[in-house]
Design a protein around this nucleic acid. Structure first.
Length: 301
DNA sequence: GAATCGTGGGC
DNA sequence: TGCCCAAGATT
């Protein structure tokens, strides 16, 4: 039990303060505009996975212009979708979103589902994205837990310098306990918690002077102790397969059709690693080989 | 739970 | 291309 029976009613955070702060200061991101569909929200949330807002925005706008409905995207060849994904990174997200769009068009009347479990059954939609769509597109009460929310909760509720390693069930329960009962307020609070983590309660140099809940933040009251959990694991990039895969795919994105193997060979000197990465791209379905032995984005030959 | 999967900006 | 980080999902 985390809460004391002697103090059952004291809310850890005041939802009203956060909701009001969000209403007054939220950035006017295009996917937050009134009337945005579930499809618009799903595309934005997928693109935003591990990817900064500024890089997503122009691509999202292009996608909404070109493919205003799931069926519009589903009608495209996979390769065109991968190319339009550009350099957002983790291009398997594009393939999964394309696949999800086909399922939504075929089985859900071309409308993104609003039920969390239905969303979770779609490719590329996990614990975060399913609840983000339910909350932000459909105004439902659903604990939306991303890295920002985890940090806000770690500080404001638990008084820690940062969140420890993620644990989906514990994290969901943590945030669920903060949400008001009614759908509309809970959905607004979820958006507010994320925004707070992004613009105020940041990893480095948090702007506590501007924080609407600093007065009942456990981290403040504890004297803002440093993070004391296990060391965060830092992902290498230079020299890894991810870098090589990125270089290989970049060649194919920039080509208008199939390319010769020599063109791919030029991007990386280690032949063994190069071949392994090309194989993995073929396995992932991000690259296809033509009958004459050349390579192309899927469906583009 | 741990490893893997891109890309680029801030420092 | 040093280290850290960014609205995660999948295996």
């Amino acid at each position: 039990m985390k809460t004391s029976a002697a103090n059952p009613v004291a809310p850890p955070l005041n939802p009203i303060e956060l909701i009001d702060w969000f209403a007054a200061t939220a950035r006017p991101l295009p996917w937050r505009a009134p009337g945005i569909t579930g499809w618009g929200v799903l595309v934005s949330e997928t693109m935003l996975q591990q990817t900064p807002v500024n890089r997503v925005q122009p691509i999202w706008e292009e996608w909404m212009r070109r493919w205003p409905l799931p069926s519009d995207l589903a009608a495209e060849p996979q390769g065109e979708v991968v190319r339009a994904w550009g350099k957002l990174g983790y291009p398997r997200r594009a393939l999964r979103l394309h696949e999800a769009a086909g399922i939504i068009a075929a089985e859900h009347g071309d409308v993104v589902p609003s039920d969390v479990n239905t969303l979770l059954a779609l490719p590329g939609i996990g614990a975060y994205t399913a609840r983000a769509v339910a909350a932000f597109a459909y105004g439902k009460r659903a604990p939306v837990v991303d890295t920002n929310v985890r940090r806000v909760v770690a500080r404001a509720v638990h008084g820690a310098g940062d969140a420890g390693p993620p644990s989906t069930k514990r994290d969901l329960d943590d945030v669920d306990a903060l949400l008001p009962d009614d759908d509309a307020s809970a959905a607004r609070l979820s958006a507010a918690l994320m925004e707070l983590g992004q613009v105020v309660c940041t990893v480095r140099s948090p702007l506590c002077e501007s924080c609407p809940i600093a007065h009942d933040c456990a981290w403040q009251h504890a004297g803002r102790p440093a993070y004391a959990g296990p060391p965060k694991k830092v992902q290498k990039f230079a020299g890894t397969d991810r870098q090589v895969r990125g270089k290989l795919l970049d060649v194919l994105r920039g080509a208008t059709g199939p390319v010769q193997r020599e063109q791919l060979d030029a991007v990386w000197s280690d032949a063994g690693q190069r071949d392994r990465c090309l194989d993995s791209l073929l396995v992932d379905g991000l690259v296809e080989q033509t009958d004459d032995g050349r390579f192309a984005l899927p469906g583009e030959h």
